[in-house]
């Protein structure tokens, strides 16, 4: 990771360009296929494929990639504040939403974690 200190503007631009390229490829697939799956998920899968096939070396995407992943939680702040828009919808159904979400989230967390811990090698 020490190398990160010497990231140049060119390396930043290259990594940002590659991420955008894969995002737009993903959006293209979404547009053509009409599947209810966002373009960014297709982009993720394509980049994963590209990295595995050695079409894209890891260090090409690392500068912008690690920056975005470092701050991904920050990007969710406006998403969460956006709950304000739905305050009316949420306040009418709050009991059902909270009870079913809490029970279901707890059940999913425990069962997936337990299953995987039990069956992984």
């Amino acid at each position: 990771m020490k190398k990160n200190i010497f990231i140049t503007v060119g390396q930043l631009a290259r990594s940002a360009g590659i991420l955008l390229l894969f995002l737009y490829l993903g959006r293209g697939i979404q547009y053509i296929s009409h599947l209810p799956i966002p373009g960014s998920i297709f982009g993720l899968l394509l980049l994963f494929l590209g990295l595995n096939l050695r079409l894209v070396p890891l260090y090409y995407v690392l500068p912008t990639g690690s920056f975005l992943l470092n701050y991904i939680t920050l990007f969710f702040v406006p998403v969460g504040v956006g709950l304000l828009q739905y305050s009316e919808l949420l306040s009418t159904h709050w009991l059902t939403i909270i009870v079913s979400s809490v029970i279901s989230t707890v059940a999913t967390l425990i069962s997936v974690g337990w299953l995987y811990q039990r069956f992984s090698k």
């Binding site: 991420l19 960014s40 890891l58 995407v61 992943l69």
Partner: peptide
């Protein structure tokens, strides 16, 4: 920030690859 979320999701391929 909403816009940056999308390339950030694409970048999740990096930990996956590792």
């Amino acid at each position: 920030f909403i816009w940056l979320l999308e390339p950030a999701v694409v970048a999740l391929a990096i930990p996956l690859f590792c």
